[in-house]
Structure formats: C-alpha cells, structure tokens
Computed example of a mutant assay.
Amino acid sequence: MTKTDADVIAETIAQIVDGVRSDRAAPELDGGFDAELWLVLASSGMTAVGVDDALGGSGGLAQDAVAVVRALARAAAHAPVAEHAMAASWLLESVRREMPSQERPLAIVTGPDLRFDPTTRLLSGSADSVPWADAASGLVVVARAEHGSWVCLIEAAAAEIVPGTNLAGESRCAVVLDVAVEAGDAAPLDAGQPEEVQARLALIRATQIAAVVDETLRRTLRYCDERAQFGRTLNNFQSTRDALAELAGEAAVVSALADRALGDLTTDRERFPVTVAAAKIRASLAARRTARLAHQLHGAIGFTREHPLRLLTTRLWAWSNEAGNEREWSQWLGRHLVSQERLWTTLVGGRVFAPDR
C-alpha cells in the first residue's frame, strides 16, 4: 500500500515526539508548553506547514497542516501547532505579512470586546481562554474597528497575560490589551474573514477530537485484548464488544465529518461554515461519549494520573467546549439555514452538504 503525504508526516511527527520524550527521566503529567519539542518541530519545518514559503512558511496544503495537527493530538503533545499554523499564521498570510521567528508560537486572540482604531492605531480590550498566550512570542489579534475588522500583530510582552489552564492542563489565558500597534503590523480584513477565523478554530478542535477519539479507540481495543477477567480477556464479553462497536462508530462518524469540512475549506468556501458546524457539533458529542465508554472499559486504572488514557480523555472533555460547543453551533446552523431559506430542503432532501446555488 502506497503511503500518502499525510502518512509520511504522521510518521515523522511520531518519531520526533518519541525522540524528545525518550530523553526524559519522567513522563509528562501536565499540559504546560513543551519548549524543547516546539524547537525540534520548528527546526524540521513542522510548525509552518501549510503556510506560503515565500512568507517564511514551509509550504504545503491545508491537508498537510491537518496531518501535523492530528499526529500531535494523538500523542497528547504540548505544542500548539494547530493554533499557530492553521489560524494565526494563516491570518498573517492572508494579509501578506511575513512570518516572525518560529522559535516560539504565535497565539490567536479573538473576542467581541477587542477594538482597534486605525487612526490612533490603539488596540484595546480583553479576551478570555486564549490558547497558549503565555507561551507565545507574538499575538495575532482580530479586532473590530468602526468599519469592518482588522488583524494586528503585537509582541506578547506588550499585553497583560493572566495564565490559566483548561481541564487538560493546557494553557488558556486571559489577555488584556491597551497598546499602540506599529505601522505595518495592522491590516484590514476582508468581509467574512472574522467568521472564517471562528470556523477554522472549530475545524481545529473537531480535527483534534477526531484524532484523539481514534487514538482512544486504538488504546482501548489493545487494553481489552490484553486485560483478563474471570478467565478470559475483556473483548470476549458481549457487553465489551457492544461498547467497542459504539466507540468505533463514534470514531468513524467524527473523522468523516472533519474530513468533509477540511475538503470544503479548500474547494467550497460557501459550504465550509456549514460543514464545520456539523463537524464540531458531532465531534463535541463524540468526545464525551468516547471518554465515558473508554473509562468504563478501563475501570479505575484509567482515572489515575499516570495512565495515558487520562491525557486523551481530559483533552476530549476540554476541547468539546472550546471553539463553540454543540449547542452553540447547533443554534448557528439553525439560524443559518433559516436565513438562507434552506431549512425545508435540508430537512426533506438532506441538503446540508449541498446548499442551493
């Protein structure tokens, strides 16, 4: 069977992560930024895959960037390549801004309270739960102006950053801004770009969830094949088989929807927000169902701090509520379909993925 580019990227990422971790005396039990891993990834060009090489990226397609994101999610790695490459760097690329140094990541900052005045060049406001802001060298901020929205690049040191974490221990910070932006570091966004940023963040989380659901399934299958109770392995019990079948179904569905949304990102920009909404709705549901089933099958050992299952399921619980949970995206999808007068054709014709032209 011929290997795809995504397969090669996944294998490379796995080798890099294993190589970095093999030199450590103790396993990683928290979600803090892994500076050593980031530098190795950056030196190999993996932190800028999918970004125009003319602007300091590594080139490649969005599918290649997603292959990196999936591999790092499977490994429960503490390196924010997803937000750095697929959101922050993409925004800078869209306004033809050259990428800064890759020695530390860029953090993407969004929120309704962020404002930019093009006349005074003052960027102000605050945002909560900003991924990896305390690990970043720069902040890529999407802010509203009197007319439209702008993207601004500032030094992370210029902002007030209050560290915090999500359930998985990953960095989620409060950011307060009151800074003058340098000339050349702010640019107006096209209409629809701020909404695409939110859709991309949802795609990132749906993609990560899909990868971790699949990895959780793989680990649970292996555990049930090895663990014995009452003289036989767990996978010989019908109730275990039923749970494993449900896990496999969750993995297949969320992966298919995430792949569909990724395809629309590059081939059908009009349909992309709709398929992203469907992917994130289903991914958030799958995350909680997967965590529940996996812990039921592993028993008490899966809840221990040292067991690798915890690194996966805490991410599933955290990511299910990030970049919009299923309720928020369901409401958005309903409003969108009604506003486009497509609700009836969608309900009777299954046209969520083929809107009228």
Rank of each mutant, 00 (worst) to 15 (best):
G111L: 03
N235S: 13
R288K: 10
L106V: 08
F353H: 09
F237T: 09
T2I: 00
T275C: 08
I281E: 01
A294C: 07
V40R: 00
T120A: 02
Q296E: 11
C152G: 07
A79F: 07
G19A: 06
N321Q: 14
N236W: 00
V197C: 02
P273K: 04
R97I: 06
G349L: 04
A79S: 12
S124N: 11
G57H: 06
V95A: 15
T207P: 10
R241F: 03
L316F: 11
G60P: 14
N235R: 15
G59T: 01
I301D: 06
L293C: 02
R241W: 04
G334I: 14
A206W: 08
R305Q: 11
G111P: 03
D7H: 13
A206G: 06
M46W: 02
L72C: 02
A26M: 09
T314K: 11
G31I: 10
T110N: 15
G32A: 11
P100Q: 05
S255H: 12
G138A: 10
V130Y: 11
R292P: 01
A180M: 13
T266G: 10
Q296K: 12
Y223S: 11
D242I: 13
T304P: 03
V141W: 13
P188S: 10
V66A: 15
A180I: 14
E195H: 06
V68G: 15
P27D: 05
P194H: 03
I204D: 05
S284N: 04
G59L: 01
T110G: 14
L29A: 06
S284K: 05
A159E: 06
S330W: 05
A14D: 15
A48G: 12
L293I: 01
R121E: 01
R289F: 00
A145E: 06
